[in-house]
Computed example of a mutant assay.
Amino acid sequence: MKISIITATYNCAHLIEECLRSVAEQTAIDKIEHIIVDGGSTDKTLSTISQYPHVAKVYSAPDRGIYHAFNRGVELASGDIIYFLGADDSLYEKSCIETVVDAFECEEIDYLITKVRCFDEVSGEVWHVNTEMSDEANICHQGFFCRSSLFEKIGPFSECFQLCADSFFMKKAIARFHGIHIDTTSANFRQGGASSSSASRLLLKREANAVAQLLGETTPSKQVQLDKNVIDLKLLLDKVLSKKEPLAIYSGMKIGVFGTRQLSITIANALRQQGAIVACFLQTTQVSVNEITGVPVKSIEEAYELGLSLVINGIEGEHESTISKVLREKLEGMKVISWRDM
Rank of each mutant, 00 (worst) to 15 (best):
C118R: 13
V101W: 04
K228W: 15
D227Y: 09
I36L: 01
I154R: 05
E93Q: 10
N290V: 03
A248S: 04
C96V: 13
N71C: 10
A276L: 07
K115Q: 15
A212S: 13
Y111I: 04
A13V: 15
A165R: 00
D227K: 06
S338M: 01
E332Y: 06
I267Y: 03
P53W: 14
I66P: 10
G307Q: 09
V295C: 05
I36D: 02
S4Y: 11
A268N: 03
Q283I: 07
I300P: 12
K244M: 01
E159V: 15
R328D: 00
Q26C: 11
M133G: 06
I6D: 02
G314P: 05
N138F: 12
C280E: 08
F119M: 02
D80M: 06
Q142I: 02
E207C: 06
E152C: 11
L226F: 11
S167Y: 01
M1R: 08
G275R: 12
I49V: 15
G155A: 04
D341Q: 14
E18A: 13
S221M: 05
A56F: 07
L310P: 13
A61Q: 06
A13S: 15
V278W: 10
T131Q: 05
S196N: 12
F145M: 10
K228N: 15
I5A: 04
T48E: 10
Q162G: 15
I66G: 03
I32F: 07
Y10W: 11
K222G: 15
S221Q: 04
K298M: 13
